[in-house]
Design a protein around this nucleic acid. Structure first.
Length: 819
RNA sequence: GGGCAAGUGGCGGAACUGGCAGACGCGCAGGUCUCAAAAACCUGAGGGGACUAUGUCCUCGUGUGGGUUCAAUUCCCACCUUGCCCACCA
């Protein structure tokens, strides 16, 4: 009987000793790069990791069987806040805490039987890795892609650090969920907006092999909108107001303007006008608060600025208002308002009794006179001078062109995505390699002086400013230019920098002269299959796509995109709830392995739900998997016991059926893994094969044995210890020789067994299936009818009635209608 | 408000390009073995109904209402619900 506690450690030892899963760059086989999102070394593996890594391992082991040289690396995303928190709480240095956790989790991964190439392991918190973060930073700094600016930033008071826009989830910190404040600080940014268009264009190449869901989310994040910037002169002043609009066709309907309370114009006016100053401070306060319940747009409020602007299309003077429904962080912080064609402007106009003027009407219809809302759709232009009668899109083009001639407008594209703020006021991260020299200004550290090492002798108290800022010998530096005393930057980089290019470092993790060798990367990249959680759809997966394009432009990689195929797996829950320490509902993988074995755990997690769905944990489901493995184990025992005579010999038909089922199963499992990526149905079809083999009368004959071997091979990506051990026993091989690297191949399928020459068709009369018939697959339509109509059973239904219609759907069904 | 995904038994879920809905597993019920239990194995089952009743048939049935089709879980239209993402984005 199958005993996981005995065979699993044994197989794992063999793999380890034989380096069974180390990538061989000299191999002639086609390469296949399978990547799983590397874990943060929090201390222990959880079920979410298990799911992620088992999916990755099924791919890896499957493609090895298919004859690929598979690269399946693993590493540690080991910079980040928890190490600092642990240091504060338990007085353990972050580095020690992190490295200890890594050691423990490595053992846990080994117990799962994941076939990693441990020779390419990396950890982002080690200087040999983060040195290259600094190197990339300097390259970007040289190209003007890394820059420093004063700006209002999202500040998490609990984490005492700034956050990127993407890290603020409905007004709260993505990590600790405390409310985010705004603060003005000098910070480092990466100009990801330069690549916004390239990131959007890149979607074309990903459409087929990335989930739609992820692409849609990214499209939302990028948030491209096309329109025009238009200049409105401010009446009676030399100044003007620049606005962005997606609807320049509605310019003739602009009856007022609105600027944000934070807009320079508002700030200037507030100095002289108390009413405006009061409104502005009140509005900003409300904005912070409305983050909490930002579901419903609040009622619009505003105050008249006292100024009028001049509409460039018709010279009309229109009032300028100040309102918080316009924000400073999108567009120009000022808008033209067309209440007839924008619902928000409409609401505002209603409240303050401003003019509403229709300038677009639906084609082939009158103007919508009911003033209960704005008409936001396309249509024909009216009340627009020379442009009347034009299609609004055409009108938009012409208006922009005409105004551009007078230097009053230009076509423009605006994006929702902002530059990536990477400064963090934290210790446990990559130091930003910059010094501030009183004479020479901001200077990048010389490349030969990299890495700027994190000091290990540091007090982490969790209060006040960044621990690095109070570390004297770290802060005191020499200017790379003049050699004079200078102050070192004490901010560290966002950890998303670390994970933006780790997949490339795996290709050459020990390189000390460059981030990686170009040729090695060219051979392995892009990643063929990436597996990870959907929660990274917008941050990690946008940052690393950006980083890849930067590396391409720097000549380091040759591909346009880092990840050719992406699979996002769902969460693992218990009774519908996410597992968490605070809820105390964690199922420990180690305990499950102890009780059921790693193979059962692996199979269960693959079988219980399709990979993208949420997976609810169930102990009884696991029992079912154990039953299945026991059944297979008994089948194998039968095959090796010579004295166990078959119940009775199988008939030729029965043998053919088993052959066909086995062949179909092999083909189906391959298809499910490689194309459908639906592992649950792959497992269920293997169960069907086992059911068929159990009821086969002549257990032990050649057909049955072949089916068993095929089964064990296709099972081996899912339950590798069990399948390999059983195969070795079955073949009477020296058990310690077997290593799954070259010994086995995915079974060849005899096409004849898959393509049926004789097929079963259904015969339907008046919508009811009345008979099934076996016909040669290539029979022509006419002969099919003749054969059907000659059938005795069919005749009874047709006799004495008039045939109205008949249809033959090839290889499937004959449908006859009679009256 | 916008976008995306999804709604199928008691549960997880299956169904290639429209072709016998509910594979496979869990749970459940009954049985075999046993002093008993566990394990294992076998059998049964979507709802409702009919009969000449242990087999055969009818009928309803994949969120709701329409449509296309000989045939719809699948395609089209409208709606409802849930989940996720975005959001005074100009």
């Amino acid at each position: 009987m199958y005993n996981p506690q005995e065979i699993e450690p044994k197989r794992q030892k063999i793999w380890r000793e034989q380096n069974a899963h180390t990538f061989d760059p000299s191999s002639k086989k086609p390469k296949y790069y399978i990547l799983v999102m590397f874990p943060y070394p929090s201390g222990r593996i959880h079920m979410g990791h298990v799911r992620n890594y088992v999916i990755g391992d099924v791919f890896a082991r499957y493609f090895r069987l298919k004859g690929y040289e598979v690269f399946h690396p693993i590493g540690w995303d080991s910079f980040g806040l928890p190490a600092e928190n642990a240091a504060i709480k338990n007085k353990i240095p972050p580095r020690l805490w992190t490295e200890t956790n890594i050691e423990h989790m490595k053992k846990q991964l080994a117990r799962l039987g994941i076939s990693y190439d441990w020779s390419s392991e990396l950890a982002t918190s080690r200087p040999e890795y983060y040195k290259w973060n600094q190197w990339f930073f300097l390259k970007m700094f040289d190209k003007g892609l890394a820059y420093r600016k004063q700006s209002a930033v999202n500040w998490c008071p609990k984490c005492a650090t700034v956050l990127a826009n993407e890290q603020v989830i409905s007004g709260a910190c993505w990590r600790c969920s405390s409310e985010v404040e705004t603060k003005d600080l000098e910070q480092w940014f990466i100009k990801i907006t330069d690549y916004a268009q390239a990131l959007l264009d890149g979607h074309k190449a990903l459409e087929k092999n990335w989930p739609d869901e992820v692409l849609t989310m990214q499209r939302n994040w990028l948030g491209r909108s096309e329109g025009a910037e238009v200049e409105f002169a401010l009446d009676g002043t030399p100044e003007s107001l620049r606005i962005f609009t997606t609807r320049p066709d509605t310019l003739f309907g602009a009856t007022f303007m609105v600027v944000a309370p934070e807009h320079p114009l508002s700030i200037k006016l507030a100095e002289a006008d108390k009413k405006i100053a009061d409104y502005a401070s009140e509005a900003v306060a409300r904005r912070v608060k409305s983050h909490e319940d930002s579901k419903s747009p609040t009622e619009k409020t505003g105050v008249f600025s006292g100024l009028c602007a001049v509409n460039p299309v018709n010279g009309e003077k229109i009032p300028v208002w100040i309102s918080d429904y316009v924000t400073m962080d999108y567009g120009t912080g000022a808008i033209m308002c067309v209440p007839a064609h924008d619902q928000r402007d409409f609401d505002f106009a209603k409240k303050y009794s401003l003019e509403i003027r229709s300038v677009i009407k639906p084609k082939n219809a009158g103007i919508n006179k009911s003033l209960d809302g704005a008409y936001e759709a396309e249509g024909e232009m009216i009340n627009s001078g020379d442009y009347d009668g034009l299609d609004n899109k055409e009108g938009a083009r012409r208006i922009v062109k005409e105004l551009a001639g007078k230097n009053l407008a230009k076509a423009a594209v605006h994006w929702r995505i902002k530059d990536w703020l990477i400064s963090r006021q934290r210790y446990w991260g990559t130091p930003i390699p910059v010094v501030y020299c009183p004479k020479c200004g901001i200077k990048g550290v010389n490349e030969k002086d990299l890495p700027v090492k994190l000091p290990d002798d540091i007090a982490i108290t969790g209060s006040g400013e960044s621990p690095l800022a109070s570390h004297k010998s770290f802060v005191e530096a020499k200017c790379p230019d003049c050699g004079g005393p200078a102050r070192r930057e004490t901010d560290t980089m966002d950890t998303f920098v670390d994970s933006s290019w780790y997949y490339a470092r795996y290709c050459d993790p020990k390189n000390t002269s460059s981030p990686f060798d170009k040729n090695k990367a060219a051979m392995l990249l892009p990643v063929d299959q990436y597996v990870g959680g959907i929660e990274h759809a917008c941050m990690h997966l946008i940052y690393s796509r950006f980083w890849h394009k930067f590396m391409r432009d720097a000549g380091l990689v040759t591909s346009d995109e880092p990840f050719a195929q992406l699979l996002t797996q769902g969460m693992v829950t218990l009774k519908g709830e996410t597992m968490s320490k605070s809820k105390g509902n964690i199922v420990e993988p180690d305990e499950i392995i102890q009780k059921y074995g790693a193979d059962a755990l692996r199979l269960f997690i693959m079988f219980a739900a399709p990979p993208s769905h949420q997976l609810d944990w169930s102990d009884s489901g696991l029992e079912g998997i154990r039953r299945f493995l026991n059944r297979v184990s008994r089948l194998a025992e039968k095959a090796t016991e010579s004295d166990n005579a078959p119940a009775r010999p199988a008939s030729p038909e029965e043998s053919l059926m088993l052959k066909k089922i086995a062949a179909r199963t092999v083909a189906k499992v391959a298809r499910d893994i490689e194309i459908e990526k639906q592992f649950n149905t792959a497992v269920s079809s293997m169960m069907e094969l086992v059911n068929a083999m159990t009821t086969y009368s002549s257990d032990g004959d050649e057909v049955w044995r072949e089916a068993l071997e095929s089964l064990l091979i296709i099972l081996s990506p899912f339950a590798p210890h069990f399948a390999q051990e059983t195969l070795a026993t079955l073949r009477g091989e020296a058990k310690d020789k077997y290593n799954n690297k070259d010994d086995d191949r995915w079974p060849d399928v005899d096409e004849k067994l898959l393509s049926d020459d004789e097929i079963e068709i259904a015969v339907q009369i008046n919508g009811k299936v009345r008979a099934h018939m076996i016909i040669p697959a290539d029979m022509d339509e006419k002969s099919v009818y003749e054969k059907v109509l000659a059938d005795e059973k069919i005749k009874q239904f047709i006799d004495g009635k008039k045939m109205v219609k008949y249809v033959y759907i090839p290889k499937k069904i004959v449908s006859i209608v009679v009256k």
